[in-house]
Design a protein around this nucleic acid. Structure first.
Length: 257
DNA sequence: CTTAATGTTCCCCA
DNA sequence: TTGGGGAACATTAA
């Protein structure tokens, strides 16, 4: 469910409701969320901050200790003051209210970490020149690279396709040979992410924010999920191929390798 | 029954 | 060492 805009939307909803609140007790109702690790001892800690790191939601806890990292995987949700469901995998009882982690497919995970994982820069904090330089020293195709979190943190399948369309770059184009389209791709990435955040993210099937609200950016998708429909720019049929095992949508006329 | 789904990781091969 | 391809993980919906 969650790429950068969705996670950002969730964090913005969580922060004002959780910062300063104490975790009275934590219960993990599926071992899969913990990925084989012990349950993080967070009871008694106060939430000092909530932020986003790529697609991770980061909870700063009081003291200087490790932080709680939540990755939503494909269908994870963090919900404030919601009723448990059959897919509730963790429950944080707070001084006032509760925080639930729901996850149908259970690709999500929760862990206590002393350090953040080593990921690439956040696209919203990156300058075009730096992005172009990063591309030049890479081999391979652009789409898998945009999905690689160690290259850039936060982009996922929807926004990679949408940004490539806006920059007129074919998903199989050589990353190192975009030339002047490299800064254009950077601009497209930033524009699409900002627009999506403004709309509260894209709700395709599962995504809702911490208060259960759906986003509306899916209404503005130009190629993602539009196979066979006319390109909004030139009218050619949008094509769907598989790249890096992900459905990849693009206009065969507008987007060049 | 088959396919695809907003993600990541691991393994094998070149 | 890097990148590509495929499988795996777990579950639902079309």
């Amino acid at each position: 469910m969650p790429e950068l805009p969705e996670v950002e939307t969730i964090v913005r909803a969580l922060a004002p409701r959780l910062v300063g609140r104490r975790i009275v007790a934590a219960r993990f109702t599926s071992k899969l969320v913990l990925r084989g690790r012990a349950a993080p001892p967070v009871a008694g800690k106060t939430i000092a901050g909530v932020s986003r790191y790529g697609k991770f939601i980061v909870f700063d806890l009081d003291g200087d200790g490790p932080r709680l990292l939540v990755h939503l995987g494909m269908t994870g949700k963090l919900l404030v003051d919601a009723e448990p469901t059959p897919y509730t995998r963790a429950v944080f009882r707070l001084g006032k209210g509760t925080l639930l982690f729901d996850d149908i497919r259970q690709f999500g995970r929760i862990e206590l970490a002393g350090a953040l994982p080593a990921l690439g820069p956040d696209p919203l904090e990156l300058r075009a020149g730096e992005f172009s330089r990063m591309l030049r020293e890479r081999r391979g195709r652009i789409k898998p690279l945009l999905l690689n979190q160690r290259f850039l943190r936060g982009l996922g399948n929807i926004y990679a396709d949408e940004a490539l369309f806006r920059a007129r770059v074919h998903p199989l184009a050589d990353a190192s040979r975009l030339g002047k389209r490299a800064p254009e791709l950077h601009r497209a990435i930033v524009a699409v992410l900002r627009a999506a955040i403004e709309k509260g993210g894209s709700s395709i099937a599962n995504y809702v924010d911490a208060e259960g609200r759906r986003g509306s950016f899916q209404l503005l998708h130009r190629v993602y999920g539009k196979a066979g429909r006319p390109c909004p720019r030139c009218g050619a049929a949008i094509r769907r191929i598989v790249v890096a095992q992900r459905g990849t949508h693009y206009c065969p006329e507008c987007q060049r390798t």
